[in-house]
Design a protein around this nucleic acid. Sequence first.
DNA 1: TAGAGTTAGTTATGCGGATAACGTTAGCCG
DNA 2: CGGCTAACGTTATCCGCATAACTAACTCTA
Lengths: 151, 151
Amino acid sequence: MDFDQADAVNQAIRLLSLRHRARIAALLAPLGLHPGQEALLLELARTGPMIGAQLSEALGVEPPSVTLMARKLEAAGHIRRTPAPDDRRASIVELTESGKTLAEQVKQLWCALAEETVAGLPARTAAELPGLLNTLTGNVDTKRPRPPARP
Amino acid sequence: MDFDQADAVNQAIRLLSLRHRARIAALLAPLGLHPGQEALLLELARTGPMIGAQLSEALGVEPPSVTLMARKLEAAGHIRRTPAPDDRRASIVELTESGKTLAEQVKQLWCALAEETVAGLPARTAAELPGLLNTLTGNVDTKRPRPPARP
DNA sequence: TAGAGTTAGTTATGCGGATAACGTTAGCCG
DNA sequence: CGGCTAACGTTATCCGCATAACTAACTCTA
C-alpha cells in the first residue's frame, strides 16, 4: 500500500476519533458529563453493580483511568462505591438514583448521536458498520496481537 | 434506532479510537514520539513550512494544542520555528534535518499500520473505507453542523 | 488617521487515558 | 502454616486535546 492510501486510512480514523469525541463532549456538556464518563454510566446501567476491575475490562481502559473517573462521578453523586464484602481489596461500583436517571438521559442522546453519525448511509452499510469497525479494532488491538495458538 | 444498535455504533467508534491510538503509541514509542505528533510531522513533510494557524487547521486541532506539541518537537530538535517576515504575530514552522528523516520513518510505519488495520477486508471495502469514515466524520463535525444556508 | 474588530499565538486549567511504582489483600502450594 | 505470586486499587506523572482569557499585531473602515 502506498503512503497516500495509508495516510487516507489512518488520518480518517484519527479525524473521526477527534470529531466523534468532540460531538459527544458537546452533547454531554449540558448534563455536566465529560467524554468517557458516559461509557462508565452506560456499562453500570447495562450490567449492574460491579467492581472496578470489571469496569476497567468492560470499558477497555486501564485501572487508573477508572479510579479517577469514578472519583469524579462519585463526587457528582452519580455513583456509589462500597467495599466488597467477600474481597477487601475490591470496591463495588453502582449507580445512585441520580446516576440512573442520568444514564437514561445519556441513552437518549446516544441514540440521537448514532443516527446523526450514520446519516446518509445506505441502510445496509449502516447495519454492517459496527462489525466493520470491530474488525478494524481487532486488527490493531495490542492486547490480542494475533489469534491465540492453543486453548 | 434502538439503544442497542446505537450503542454498537458509538461503542465501536470509541473502541476503535482507543485501540488505534494505542497501536500508534506503540509504533511511535521507539522513535520517541507520542500520538498526535506524527500528524504534525507528516503535515509539514507533505505541505512544507507553514505557520501555526495553518497547522492547527490542517491537523484539526485547536491552536493551544499546536503550541504545546510544537514546543516539544522543537525541544527534541525535529522542527524549527522562526518569526514570519511579513507578519510579526506568526511563526513559520518547518522540519529540521532530523525531523525530515524522522518523518520518513513515520511514513514507513504509517503504511504498515494501515495495512495491519484493514487486514482481512475485501479489497473493495478497504478502498471505500476512507470515504466511509470521512462521511461519518462530516456527519458529526461540530464545525459544520449543517450545510451552510447562503453564501 | 484613529479606532474597532480580527487574527496569531501563548498561558492557565481541566479532563481522559497511559505507564510506573506502590501497598494491601487473596489465593496457591510446598 | 508460611511464603510466593497474582490481583485490586491507588497515587504520581506524562501527553494530547479542549476551553477561557489574554497580549500583540494586522486590517479594515469611518
